[in-house]
Design a binder for these strands. Structure first.
Lengths: 138, 138
DNA sequence: ATGTTAATTTAGAAATGTTCTAAAGTAGTA
DNA sequence: TACTACTTTAGAACATTTCTAAATTAACAT
């Protein structure tokens, strides 16, 4: 059978996030979280939803993605100017970014050692992002 | 304190990059490289140029920034969706990103230890970017 | 059930940042 | 001076994201 992590159930997820379980949010949560770790753009998710006969507007896709980020169900990853990726893996981890294809790949945090983090002059560290940019070999 | 390299002179810089030393490129090179390490957006540089009575169009700002990146005089840093920063520090280094103000601050590469970089499944590592995101203290 | 209310969704407009186009201007060369 | 290729430019076009105001829907009291 399937070998990705157990899916908590869209309804439980939304309830825990204190988001009203609307038709659209339930459907999007299923698309996002039933298939293991993913990196999607707003447009990709919209196409996927429409393709699965879930009529949902792009505005709702954006609303929902941001609500999910706020609720810590998703993480926004910025590697490219002018386009955001949303990552269903919310564990501490890093990324390969393949410049040729625009695809991201997770790197578990125990595969990279980042040490001696300097303290910022003010404020607190919210997150450390390591992006390994990969280009095709010459 | 400042570890910025001596400014080579806009003319020499452009010649070395095989870019014709036009009025606009000379002026922009001076703005960018005469003041030590900086992180500017296209719009900031445009405002600065116009403020210094250097009439230059935004299109030329973008053209020039990209030519400078291609010539390895600048590095493009992506930390925010929908806006690029251009960094005059082309040495190997990392960044604090202050979410509150949208400002970047360099971290010399010897201040952070990044070890055990995994190899990508294909292609070659072009660059490793470490971004420490800083939020104001609660 | 039904009605009420506040949250949500929506289409389309607007905003934002960047790139493109094609015409005018300029540097380099002879 | 004339020639040519490169550069600059204004403005249009583009891509992604956010906003707006009206319609819809979930939650809940009755």
């Amino acid at each position: 059978m399937s070998n990705h992590r157990p899916f908590a159930g869209a309804l439980e997820l939304l309830r825990a996030a204190k988001l009203r379980p609307t038709r659209q949010r339930l459907a999007l949560a299923k698309l996002l979280f039933e298939k293991g770790d993913r990196h999607v753009t707003a447009e990709q998710l919209h196409d996927e939803a429409v393709g699965a006969s879930i009529p949902v507007s792009l505005a709702t896709i954006y609303n929902t993605l941001h609500q999910f980020v706020d609720a810590r169900l998703l993480r926004e990853v910025v590697v490219n100017p002018g386009r955001s990726y949303f990552d269903t893996n919310i564990a501490d981890h890093h990324h390969f970014f393949f410049e040729e294809t625009g695809k991201l790949m997770d790197i578990p945090s125990d595969k990279i050692e980042v040490r001696n983090l300097p303290q910022p002059p003010h404020g607190a560290i919210r997150r450390v992002d390591v992006v390994i940019r990969v280009a095709p070999k010459g």
